[in-house]
Every structure is written in C-alpha cells, then in structure tokens.
C-alpha cells in the first residue's frame, strides 16, 4: 500500500550529511552492510514500501540511535535531531499503515528479517554505528521510490 507522510527529508538529510564522515569513520567493517546486502532495498516491490519503511523507522528508533552516543557534542546533537525526526515520522507511518492496512508482503518480511540478522551479527555498538552510517542508503532508496 502507499503512504504519503509529510516528513522533512531535507532536514534529515542535512543532519546526516553534517555527521556522515564522522560516523562512517567509526565503522571499520567494509565487508558487511546492515541495509544493502545481500539484497538491496531497491529490489523490493513498490507495494511493500510502506510496510518496510515503517519497520525500518521503528528499527532505527527502537534499536539504533540509543547506542550511538559519542564523545562529540555536535555529533550527539545532530543524532538527537535525526532521532526525533525519525520518531515523528515513524508515528505518522504507523498511523498510515493502520489506515491503509499496509500488509507486509513476504518479500519485505524476509528483507527485514535479514536486516535484523545483519544487525544481531555484530556487537550492539558496532551494529548501531554501522546502521547510522548507512542512513543515506535508506534516504536514497526513499527518495528514489517517492
């Protein structure tokens, strides 16, 4: 199902761009990705988009941001900005899913399981920092499929 939710992608993107180099430099693992391997988000069917987007926003709010605290005040403030934007958006996506009865297809369920497996495969801080460093993968996919 489709979900038209107003969220300020530009603000989230600007917040991430400001800390991207810092966050990605804390992730030394080149050979693993939480979001994009083995299967890319871009391969998902359009009908699954609403469900997987909500699942991913909830994943970031529930699991990722809280383990990304750094020693850098500027980075922490930008993470807070992104986290609060994600919280606001995930609420709207949740309401939209209920109203539109966005069913989670088999493909997106499988994809989200894979993402959780990738996440649980690392220690929590590494997994959280890697997930945060991959935010542009999520944003690129969302904007491309708008």
């Amino acid at each position: 199902g489709s979900c038209r939710v107003s969220m300020s992608m530009a603000e989230i993107r600007a917040g991430f761009t400001a800390i991207k180099a810092n966050i990605q430099s804390r992730d030394p693992i080149r050979t693993l990705s939480i979001l994009s391997h083995p299967h890319s988000l871009h391969k998902l069917k359009p009908s699954d988009r609403c469900c997987i987007t909500h699942q991913l926003f909830t994943f970031y709010v529930d699991k990722v941001f809280k383990h990304c605290r750094t020693e850098d005040s500027f980075v922490n403030r930008k993470i807070s900005s992104i986290a609060n934007s994600f919280l606001s958006a995930s609420r709207k996506l949740g309401q939209c899913r209920e109203q539109n009865n966005c069913v989670c297809g088999e493909e997106s369920t499988e994809k989200f399981k894979q993402i959780l497996a990738n996440y649980e495969g690392l220690n929590v801080t590494s997994a959280a920092m890697k997930s945060l460093g991959e935010l542009d993968i999520l944003l690129d996919w969302m904007e491309k499929s708008r």
Partner: peptide
Amino acid sequence: YAVYGVGK
C-alpha cells in the same frame, strides 16, 4: 576497490 558490504 570494494563495494561496501561485499566481502572482497
């Protein structure tokens, strides 16, 4: 070079 997330 390496594709991010791919092991080689």
